[in-house]
Each structure stands twice: as structure tokens, then as C-alpha cells.
Simulated assay, not measured.
Amino acid sequence: MRAVRLSAATAVATVTALTAVTGCTQKSDAEADGSGAVKVTATDDACKVSTTKFPAGHVQLAIENKGSRVTEVELLFPDDRIVSERENIGPGTKSSLTAEVKSGSYRIACVPGMKGKGHRQDVTATGGTVAERDPRLDKAVADYRTYAQEQADQTLPKVKTFTDAIRKGDLAGAKKAYAPSRIGWERTEPIAESFGNIDPKTDTRADGLEQGQKWTGWHRLEKALWQDKKIGADEKALATQLDKDLRNWQQRVGKAVITPTSMANGAKELLDEVATGKVTGEEERYSHTDLVDFKANVEGAEKAYDLLKPVAAKNDPALAKELDKQFAALDTLLDKYRQDKGGYDFISYDKVGKQQRKELSDAVNALAEPLSKLAAAVVK
């Protein structure tokens, strides 16, 4: 699944002067009104920015979707690696995105329908590097990096249990191992998706394939196990490919560039993942193990928040209080669907009724709204 992705590498060091599509020699709207934000207007056929040059450091995008479809806005390196993004911006709505960038060349992309490359504007961050920050944020980043690596390291043996069962033709064993194999990935999905080609190979659903893309990974195997009820030579080969792709992810996690704002944005996008894929039952449509993914996404978001909380609580005490309240409420609600105490044996999601799903959705939305303010709180 798509989600906000933390950058996998540093920005290009050399600043390349870019042609200003909207007239970089003039004052931008942000400069003129003193807001400091780069205004991004997304439509069905364009992505307009108020300025193509802005100072390096903490950059805020003030986004408005004037199109007819839901869209996402991405801040990209020139080679399409994602610095950060905001998904699920509905028609006629506004949103914001705070990112931390070094001097260099970037692109801002608006993606109507949240598929494909969308419409793009080249932009440049100029001047000095990111300002000195609170040392507690440096500790938060270091601790989050450790957490992400631990999740990857713990995932590989669980995946091997899953793929070994497939290679043995053990349908029941593979089904049992499937959901546990995904927990570490779901907790740290923002980093996992930052590496470009790993996520499409491992975690794409059938309706998320790009043109010409071969369907591989967890969900292809999920369909074979639950819908097709068979394990053949193709599935065994796909299991081995999944092992290989996830080893690649594990080896690259330590190289991800992580910032306080990308941690905060990633936490918000994990909640968006829940709202758009897990609550609807679309993510695990064959196995109905959505609540395992749901819980893992929430845990990943809560971990990022907990690490950033010392600074966020100082800068915005009311926000931290609300986030504490909403995380606790959602955790308590999820506990209602456990079949074991403190574990990951949740009921099958096809047994969760319409009203119960609405209750879950409402709790996610109640948390997502204040969580969207976390990035701004840690850079005040």
C-alpha cells in the first residue's frame, strides 16, 4: 500500500538553477503575504505552485485541491524518491505538509486519483541547510531508526516461516504464518515505501498495479491461499522472490534519511493507510486479516509520536493531550476485537459489521485530525 515515505537518501548536493514556470524572479504568494508557505493548487490537469524557489530548512506546503478527484501531493527528489507526501486530499478541500529539506533540486507532484506520476513542477530549495534543532529531536530520530531496523530484522524470520510453508505446499501452515509476517512491515511502512521499487514488488494489491507490472508479493500469495486454495510452482517461486525483496528492504533500512517532520508525516499517513485500506477491508480482501495490519499501523504511528512527544508537548501541550487521548481510545477500541490478551489474534474482519466498522473509522478520523498537526508542532 502507498503511504507517506521517509526519504531513502540525502538530497543532491549541487543546486541546479531551474526555469521558473510561474516566474521565479517575482515575489511568490508566500513571500508577499508573509505566510512562509508554498501554495500548491492541484487540479485534474495541473499542479500550480506559488513559487519555484524557497529557502532550505522547514518547508510548508499549503495545499488546495480544486480538482474533481481525490489527490495526493508529493515532494520529490529529482530521481522520484519521495521526501514526503500527503495523500487522500478530497475535491474542494485543503491540507498542509511540513517537510525538512536541504539545499537542492526537488519536484512537487500532484497526483489526481492517486495513481501514476501526476503533474509536476520543478522547484529549488536555496540557501543554508536545515537549522540547528532541539537535541531531543536528534535522539528521537536515532531511536526511530533503531526501531525501524529492529522491525525489519524481526520480520525476516517470520516471513521465512510463511514462505517455507509455501515451498512445502503446506496451505494451512502458510495461512497461519501470513498475518504475523506482515506486522513489522506495517509498523514501519513509511520507510519501507521510500525505496521506490520494493513496495510495488512486495505489497501491491491487484487493483494497484501499474501498466505492465507483474503482480508479486504478499497479496498475490494471499489470493492463492485463500481464494484459489492452491500452491503451485508459481507460488513457490513467488515465495522465494518475496524473501529476496524483503532482505533487500532489511539491508537498506539503516540508510534511510529520517527527520522529525518525516516521522510525524509518516505517522499521519499510517493512519490514512488504516482509513483507506484497513477499515474498508480492501487491504486483506482474501484473508480478512485486516485488524492485524490495522493494529500494526497504529503501533507504528504511536511509536513515532511517543518519540517526538517531549518536544511536541512543550511546543503544543493541548495537541499532545489530545493525541494521548485519541491514541488511548483507538487502542481500547481495537482490544475489543482481540481473541488473545495482548497478542495479534484478531477476529476475521468479515465478521466485523457495518456499524462496528463505522465506529472504527470514526476513531481513526478522530486521531488523524490532531496527528496531522504533529509535524508543525515539532518544528516550532
Rank of each mutant, 00 (worst) to 15 (best):
E193V: 12
G353C: 07
K351D: 12
T124C: 13
S361Y: 08
G36K: 02
S68N: 14
T161I: 11
G254K: 14
A152M: 04
D33C: 14
Y344S: 12
T93L: 06
R252I: 00
G92W: 04
P200G: 07
T52I: 01
V101L: 05
R136G: 15
C47R: 00
K336F: 00
V21K: 13
D199A: 15
R133S: 15
V83E: 13
L242R: 01
A224R: 05
T216V: 03
A8D: 12
P190I: 05
F162S: 04
T16N: 13
N365C: 00
K268R: 12
K102D: 15
A304Y: 04
G113M: 04
V141T: 13
H58I: 15
G342E: 09
A131V: 11
K176H: 05
G118E: 06
Q355V: 08
K325M: 03
L246A: 02
R357Y: 07
A32C: 05
L137W: 01
H119E: 12
T129Q: 13
D243E: 14
Y349W: 12
D345K: 12
D45W: 00
P317I: 00
G57I: 09
R69H: 13
D207E: 14
A32K: 09
K201W: 01
Y305R: 01
K102C: 11
F294D: 06
D45P: 02
E284K: 11
Q213F: 04
A366H: 03
Q154A: 15
S50K: 00
D122E: 14
T52L: 00
D143V: 00
Q213N: 08
S181D: 06
K309Q: 12
L330Y: 11
E235P: 13
L323Q: 05
S84N: 14
H119M: 02
L18F: 03
K358W: 06
A192I: 05
T25Q: 09
D306L: 12
W215T: 08
K201A: 15
R357M: 06
K341D: 15
D207Q: 09
G57N: 07
D272Y: 06
G173N: 07
V59K: 00
A42Q: 10
L137A: 07
K321Y: 03
D134I: 07
V21W: 02
L61R: 01
T155V: 04
G116F: 02
V4A: 10
D29G: 09
Q60S: 10
V59S: 03
A56M: 00
